[in-house]
Design a protein around this nucleic acid. Structure first.
Lengths: 207, 207
DNA sequence: CACCCTTGTTGACTGCCTGCCAATAAAGTG
DNA sequence: CACTTTATTGGCAGGCAGTCAACAAGGGTG
């Protein structure tokens, strides 16, 4: 007889955690929440179902972790030229953004897609934090008169984020717009916002 | 003894269906899908749980019906003046829209809110249909050069719908923008889109 | 090399939830 | 008042999620 092979292998907690999370990300990305059972995830990861609870607590907790994982945008290279006229800065910003999105397009679309009714405070908080982070980045990249510290400016650009997501969906998922058309739409819109809208919502006197 | 009171009352199928649906709408509006059990809905409606399946089939079917119900926008009064210069038409359009939304703001926000990960084809289809309907209405109201029959125009305005939803959320839910600020943002953006973007995405030669 | 100790992992138990279906009774009809 | 129709109920069967005590993989120690 050869050496008795162990029935299962022991992994470092971090490694096991990450492995399970990867499987969960894949499954939750394909099917809606209630159509994915913890048994499915456990089978996919090749572990006992109870192990999921051991590492993540409840199924919902695992789901929240998945959302956090998927919302995590690839590192923002600040390699965007923040100089030149407004139009150039905006174009560069939009261009760079579309580039990063096209690389992770599928995941991005899955995350930002609307699931429908069902107000889930925790999920909304995670997405809101991601949106605000993106808004700050945009304001930073575009430069003056855009001000990352102005709450009004951030709110407007968060709303602009809604336009960005919807436009990217039209392009990357539905293919009803070309990349150039999306670029045109987002650039013009952002230019208009920076020039005509932001000055009107600046919190000048701390009102 | 007074007349023996029946243990339960018989309702017309339509009436019962609507009553159950109303309860489902309320509960699904408060909590996420998996946190609402069919038992909860049945108790709320004062009926046996099996009746839900009788009228709606599965729990998911009932949920889809709820989404359809909530997506249903109040009747589009075409009482918007579709005359005058572009700016006036756009302003009137946005104004009217914000009015109707403010009336049903809470529901509107709940429906259009993103739930997070979980691609559900059926839900997305329902929301997509509603978005496209709204896009046609906007293109119609704004008038030339906007063309409700142009697929490219509709795609751009569907994307614009993303901006509208996000902006309304900032205003009606988070109160980070005032109504006037939202009005400014949506008007300027729509004007820019009609003037600078739509001409660039027109399906001229059926390419 | 044998033993032990830590702890990553398992498997069963329990309670809840969903979909199904035959039995039941409310209300109309002759 | 009997009879029919059918809206409604209640219980059954299968599946899923959370808990926990027991097990074994792998490294450390003498």
């Amino acid at each position: 007889m050869t050496a008795a092979e162990p029935r299962w292998r022991r992994l470092e907690p971090d490694a096991r955690r990450e492995q399970i999370l990867a499987c969960a990300v894949r499954l939750f990305g394909e099917r809606p929440y209630s159509a994915v059972s913890t048994t499915d995830i456990a089978v996919e990861a090749g572990v006992a179902r109870g192990l999921l609870n051991h590492y993540f607590g409840t199924k919902r907790d695992l789901y929240l972790e998945v959302v956090r994982q998927m919302v995590l945008l690839p590192e923002f290279d600040s390699a965007v030229a923040a100089t030149g006229p407004l139009r150039a800065r905006v174009e560069a910003s939009v261009d760079w953004f579309l580039g990063t999105v096209s690389a992770h397009g599928k995941t991005f679309v899955a995350v930002t897609g609307a699931e429908g009714v069902g107000t889930d405070p925790e999920i909304e908080q995670i997405l809101a934090a991601a949106d605000d982070f993106a808004a700050r980045k945009v304001l930073e990249t575009v430069g003056p008169p855009a001000d990352p510290h102005d709450p009004g400016h951030r709110a407007v650009v968060r709303a602009y984020g809604g336009l960005v997501k919807a436009a990217v969906r039209e392009w990357a998922r539905d293919e009803t717009l070309t990349r150039d058309q999306v670029h045109l739409l987002l650039s013009r819109a952002l230019i208009t916002i920076v020039r005509d809208v932001l000055p009107g919502v600046a919190a000048k006197g701390d009102t």
